[in-house]
Amino acid sequence: MQYHAPATVKDAVKLLAASKGSTQVLAGGTDLLVRMRSGFSEPDTVIDIKRISPMCKIARDGKGFAIGAAVSSAEMSENPALVKAWPGVVEAAALIGSTQIQGRATIAGNLCNASPAADSVPAMVAAGAKALIRGPKGKRKVAVEKICKGPGKTVLKKGELVEAILLPAKPARTGDAYLRFIPRTEMDIAVAGAGVCLTLDAKGVCTAARVSLGAIAPTVLLVSKAAKALIGTKVDDAALDALAKACSAAARPIDDKRGTKEFRIHIAGVLARRAAIIARDRALGKS
């Protein structure tokens, strides 16, 4: 195996494009090193991006944010402006693994690992985040929900890497939230997860919403029917019931060691309902 720690994005892309055999980008490494240890992944080349200083920063991107691909979830929690703007995304990132994991894990890595159960991904999808991709042919921006094609598979092409996650400017009276269900209180992979981002008008009526679900399909789902259940309502009990129903209907999970199909279908609705209440309260400035 070869280990490279380039100092610029340009060099990283060059190395990626030129590498032979299997190549892995090393951000936090909290998934990659586990895969390497189990023998599941035996890369010929590892490209460590943590020496690329712009990728280690959280920058303002207009009125939004550009979160460098090497920024750990702990660093996100320590950025007051980001926490204020996108608490759902920050909290989702802070659910990944333990304190130790959060000291390393990145949301770009979480995305590129392409697990359907990745905690930060539904939150990013709900928030309308985009991945800034850099490759031999330049930059492109892709909506986060379009990145994963299936478990472990992304749309990234040879030589490409995610440089940053772009979070948009948050509209007024907008709140986001992410909840997941795990059997313990910490340290587990989500059995199901739900992200909700909604905008209210001055009267408290929902004018826009994005609802996403994790761990209930091969990829994280953006559920437009669930969003429709909220839009035009005051996010009251009836709307929340409709939201939960739409989420359970959209779920097409599997049975596995972490949960049963029927449990996941049920819990998807419960989580979306609870997340929507938090998002609504945030939009109302209650929390």
Binding site: R184, E186, M187, D188, K257
Partner: peptide
């Protein structure tokens, strides 16, 4: 212990063999 249809142990790690953590 969770065994699959194939008789293989599905959760041979502390991630999915879930012993109590402090926050539980």
């Amino acid at each position: 212990y969770i065994y699959g249809e194939d008789g293989r142990l599905q959760n041979a790690g502390f991630l999915d063999y879930r012993i109590p953590v402090a926050s539980d």
